[in-house]
Amino acid sequence: MMEFAKAFLVGGLLCVIGQILIDKTKLMSGRILVMYVCLGCILGGLGIYQTLEEFGGAGATVPLTGFGFRLAEGVMKEVDSAGFLGIFTGGMKAAAGGVTAAVFFAFLAALVANPKEK
């Protein structure tokens, strides 16, 4: 039960930071997503995000910072195994599953759904 509470807390707080950025700086949601990915990637590179993941579990991996974190982990692992070329392949490899899923479901959705009014 404790791990759900931790996931709720960490994930919720990451969203609150995003909300403050939206309301205070008038940043568009697209920019928030970019910031989160970059931030997660950098924190992952510095070895800080790992601690957050250990504590928060899905609360740290479900927000988009977790996606950035996965890119950092992927690229470092790939550099370990493939050396310099790993810089070019590691990030994309780690992102492949998520991006492919998004493309696939977006395609399906576009096939069946039509634009709706608000």
Partner: peptide, 29 residues
């Protein structure tokens, strides 16, 4: 138009991962 909004996430995510990878390659291992 699929990546009209999310494209930048992929672009900057990839670039940041390259930066992280490069630094790791140079000093991290």
């Amino acid at each position: 138009k699929m990546f009209l909004v999310a494209g930048p996430v992929i672009v900057y995510g990839t670039l940041t991962s390259m930066l992280v990878g490069l630094i790791y390659f140079l000093i991290g291992r």
